[in-house]
Each structure stands twice: as C-alpha cells, then as structure tokens.
Computed example of a mutant assay.
Amino acid sequence: FWSFLTDVFTNRQATRLFGAIAAGGSAGAIGGPAITGVLAQQLEPASLLPIAAVILACTLPCMWVLERFSDRSSEHGTTNQPLGGTLFEGVKAVLQSRYLLGICLFIWLYTTLATFLYFIQADIISNALDDSGDRTAMFAAIDLLTNTLTVGIQLFLTARFVQYFGLGRALSFVPLLVAAGFVVLVAAPMLLSIAAVQVIRRAGNYALAKPGREMLFTVVPRFEKYKSKNFIDTVVYRGSDAIAGWAYTGLTGLGLGISGISVVAIPLAVLWAVIGYRLGVSRQARATDTATPVSTAARRIP
C-alpha cells in the first residue's frame, strides 16, 4: 500500500497528505474494536466472520479508484508498468545505498526500543496488577488513548509539523521523546510512568515517525519503492524485532533490571534521533536534486 502511494504521490504531496491518509488506519483501529464490542453482544463470534469479510471486500473498490487515479496522475503512465527482475535486486540496492542503509538503521533502532518498552510494560503491569481483568483493562485504556490521540495528531498536526520544522526534525522528535521516557523509567519504573511513555511513544510513532518514514521513499527510484522498501519492511523490520527480544533476554540474564535496561536504551534513542534527522535532511537534498515539473493532473490533487 505505502509502496504504491510513494509511487503515485509526489514528494510535496506526500508531505501534505500522508498524515491524513495514515489517520484512516488509526480510525479503523478505533472503529474496529468498537463495532466488534457492540456486535459481540448480539451475535455469536462465528457470525462476525462474514461481516469482517464484507468489510475487507470493501477495499477492492478503493484499490480500483487508486489504480484509476494513478493512471491520471502519474507522469508518462509509468506506474502500471511491470518492474521485472527479482527480489534480490532490492536487497542489492539496499546494500549499495547509504540512504537505504540509513533507513534500515532507523527501523532497527525503532523496533529495538519498541520491543524493550513492550517487555518493560509487561513486567511493570504484571507486578502492579494481580488480576488479569485489571491488566486487560489497562492495556485497553492505553490502546484507546493512543489511537484517539494519534488520529487527532495525524489529521491536524502531522502535515503542519513536517512543513514547518522539516522532515529531519519530525523524524528526530519521537526518538528524543523516547529518550526522555527512558530517563523517567530510570528514576521511576512504575505503572503511571510506563503508561505515559507508551502512549506518547506509540502516538508519536503512528502520527509522525511512520508517515515520515514513508515520505523517505518518495525520492528513490521506482524499483526501490517496491523491492527495497518491502525487503526493509519485512526482513529488516521483523528481523530487528526478533533480535531485540533476544537482546532484552540477554540483558536481563546479565542481571539488569528495568532501570539498567533503560540506561542502555537512552544512547540508542539519541542515536535514533540523529539518524532520523540526517535521513530527513538527505531526503530534502535528494528531492531538490531530482525535482521535475509536476504534471497537470498531479497539480490538481487537493
């Protein structure tokens, strides 16, 4: 989906629209559980599956509209042309590009710190709340607050933040907040602290870091948008997640508690911020170097 959007929208359009587009996913994250909660009181669980299938099928006309839109807005009609070649071309491009390797490092640091916070959250909540129902309610409250805050930021602040401060500062903002959050956890590893850190971190990621990360791919060649990007989003992302889990286990095996692991995480968060800033600056330089006249159809995009 995001590969296709980086192929259709120009660099400037992505800056303006990707936050609002991402809000669609956040709205679904709120509406889906809410609809399920209401229907589950009226129907058997198995009866919810056909409803889910119908909702999923509604994505098909959306795909058709996007496909038609790409025909009108893409320059020279190249969007629908087959790429050819193999997946390994994308891997090779990643290994030969400092820019793509920087994105890999950015994602590795993000997934590592997110995994650390996930395990810290599990430890703190399990120690603070004995009842499984209370723990479930706490997780639900964190998710609800996160998704609600995310939608508001995506709709009203993401584009303005990137346009005013630049993508580099936007990509470094969330890592700096995470670094501050780990400082808080060093001093006070308690329930309120981890809840606040998780809400701020996740909302900031969905509203700023994720759309900003997708904007980075608007300035790369087309085959990298599909082949290299999907290698990064699968192998690098999930591989980093697994390695981070092993790393957390190793740190706890060395006797480090929540405060100790938070101390280790602080410099990683600062490095994450530096990488994010440099990627944003590099993306702007690439956009300036490769700037081409926008087609008439593209200019009409609101």
Rank of each mutant, 00 (worst) to 15 (best):
T148L: 15
I51R: 04
G31R: 00
L171Q: 02
G24H: 03
V281Q: 09
S126W: 01
I120L: 08
F161G: 02
S47C: 05
G212T: 07
P82V: 05
I200W: 04
D233R: 11
I200R: 04
L149D: 00
L66I: 11
T111E: 13
A27L: 15
T79Q: 13
F88M: 14
F9H: 05
Y237K: 06
R202K: 13
T10L: 04
P267M: 06
S240K: 03
T136V: 12
A170D: 05
V183R: 01
R12L: 06
C58T: 15
A180W: 01
T148Q: 06
V186N: 03
G250W: 10
G25N: 12
T234H: 08
R278F: 10
S193C: 12
V174G: 01
H76R: 14
I275A: 10
A40Q: 10
P33M: 07
T288W: 02
T86I: 02
F182A: 01
S259C: 04
G84C: 04
G260D: 10
T249M: 11
A203C: 10
A242R: 08
V197Y: 05
G25M: 10
L157S: 09
S74A: 10
L254V: 04
R201C: 07
F165A: 15
A114H: 11
S282A: 15
I55R: 13
P267H: 06
S259I: 03
R72N: 03
L185M: 13
A20D: 00
A137L: 14
R286K: 12
A128H: 04
V199G: 03
A242W: 11
T15M: 11
V294W: 00
L254S: 11
G250I: 05
S172P: 00
L208K: 02
F217W: 14
T218P: 05
C104A: 09
F1M: 14
G257K: 08
L271F: 06
Q13E: 14
